[in-house]
């Protein structure tokens, strides 16, 4: 984890399947604590090779927690084309996405969380 002085950046790296769900959950929970006093959380996805359903659910949960606390929650970095393809195949996004910003818009019902 690296601090930028603005949003708290969390760098995800590698394949996130069910076996890493608990690890990702505790990382996100810890980040939520660390983000106090900051505008929000920014998840870096550059190095992510796989994002299975449990990980996607955790990202939705993290957004819901952030919205409750009045924090922003977003994504940054390029999305691996394979990850994008799998997300689309799983009906989790509305279109293929190339970067984090597009992902936040394309995740189904994501922007409506807390609205």
């Amino acid at each position: 984890m690296a601090n930028t002085g603005e949003a708290l950046r969390i760098i995800l790296s590698g394949a996130y399947g069910i076996e890493r769900a608990a690890e990702l959950a505790s990382a996100l929970r810890a980040a939520l604590q660390d983000a106090k006093g900051r505008p929000g959380l920014l998840i870096e996805l550059d190095e992510v090779e796989e994002l299975d359903l449990p990980a996607v659910q955790l990202l939705y949960a993290a957004r819901r927690s952030c919205v409750r606390r009045g924090l922003a929650f977003g994504f940054a970095g390029a999305i691996n084309p394979e990850v994008s393809k799998r997300l689309l195949a799983g009906g989790l996004v509305s279109r293929r996405v190339a970067d984090g910003e597009a992902l936040a818009e394309a995740f189904i019902g994501f922007s409506a969380i807390g609205a």
Partner: peptide, 27 residues
């Protein structure tokens, strides 16, 4: 196949069991 997931049942991080399935699909 055209498929859309529904993750509206996902709770907050605090309430969530990371190894549970909250998703549903309409296809």
């Amino acid at each position: 196949l055209s498929v859309v997931a529904d993750l509206s049942a996902v709770p907050t991080l605090e309430e969530m069991d990371p190894e549970a399935c909250y998703a549903g699909w309409e296809a």
